[in-house]
Design a protein around this nucleic acid. Structure first.
Length: 292
DNA sequence: GACTCGTGGTT
DNA sequence: TAACCAAGAGT
């Protein structure tokens, strides 16, 4: 038992947020939906969409029976709308291959569309109490600071990092599952990226980064994600036009949404390639575009 | 590994 | 205010 366990578990017991997907009444499907939505997206923006989603599609079968375009529409402005498409595809796979029940095995979860190492471990751990290393940006930051003594983890997960996380995972299955969510919560609420609240941290007295005097990050420059004027912004603008419309939208509407032709055409082509939009032949000269 | 893929709040 | 960042996945 690491000396980090007891204080972190105790802190979590007292300070954990009451999130819908954490309640004992929450289904594995609720947990899985939350994990898809939380990929690169803050909790506060996920909450209302998650609630509406579960009310409309309480099971994987319910979602699979609906059009993928409806998932894209219900995704709203969460961002990265391909996640909506993948969640729909994952629901279909769960119906086709798992009898409509979210699988509990990490390997089975990993085989689903849109489920990577993090999400597979998170669903197995949070929904089914399985023992897995759940390594997200929060956990990586907490371990980087408390154990390694640096402000921030590197750009990608290293072998050493995974070994460290594995060595800290409690042996007992139930304790391991609670530990996973507790470390994550500590990173989300206290050991935050830009302004950590060390005075509220249960392991501040044994934090290597704090003991070293909070040395600043000195690794390679972290990539800054620009947005204005990018293809991503253009795609978002175009998809938004169709998402907020009743039926198929004529190309002129897209033209009005983004004036630069070359970029608009490129973005439209990529949206069609991703399956986020489909071309609807009208018999007229001008094609229309709709959700799939 | 490096890149792409949305959106909006915070500093 | 421009930069930073938020429970990653897929190519």
């Amino acid at each position: 038992m690491s000396e980090l366990h007891a204080p972190v578990l105790g802190w979590y017991d007292e300070h954990a947020r009451d999130l819908p997907w954490r309640r004992t009444s929450a289904s594995a499907w609720s947990v899985m939906v939350s994990e898809f939505m939380l990929q690169q997206t803050p909790v506060n923006r996920v909450l209302p969409v998650h609630e509406a989603w579960l009310e409309r599609w309480p099971t994987p079968a319910a979602l699979a029976a609906d059009e993928p375009g409806e998932a894209v529409r219900a995704w709203g402005r969460l961002g990265y709308p391909r996640r909506a498409l993948r969640l729909h595809a994952a629901a279909s796979a769960i119906v086709a291959e798992h009898g409509g029940e979210v699988p509990a095995d990490k390997e089975a979860l990993l085989a689903l569309p849109g489920v990577g190492d993090y999400t597979a471990a998170a669903v197995a751990s949070f929904a089914f109490g399985r023992r897995h290393v759940v390594l997200d940006t929060n956990v990586r930051r907490v371990l980087a600071r408390t154990v390694t003594g640096v402000e921030l983890p590197g750009s990608s997960v290293t072998r050493a990092e995974r070994d460290l996380a594995t060595s800290l995972l409690p042996d007992d299955e139930a304790t391991a599952a609670t530990w996973a969510v507790a470390v994550m919560e500590l990173g989300a609420l206290v050991c935050t990226a830009t302004s950590p609240s060390c005075h509220r941290c249960p392991v501040a007295d044994r934090c290597a980064w704090r003991a070293a005097g909070h040395p600043a990050y000195d690794g390679p420059a972290r990539k800054v994600q620009t947005y204005a004027g990018t293809d991503r912004q253009c795609r978002g603008r175009l998809l938004g036009v169709v998402r907020d419309s009743e039926g198929a939208v004529p190309g002129t509407r897209l033209h009005a949404a983004w004036s630069e032709t070359a970029q608009r055409e490129r973005a439209l082509a990529s949206l069609l390639a991703d399956g986020l939009l489909v071309r609807v032949e009208t018999g007229e000269a001008e094609p229309r575009y709709a959700l799939p």
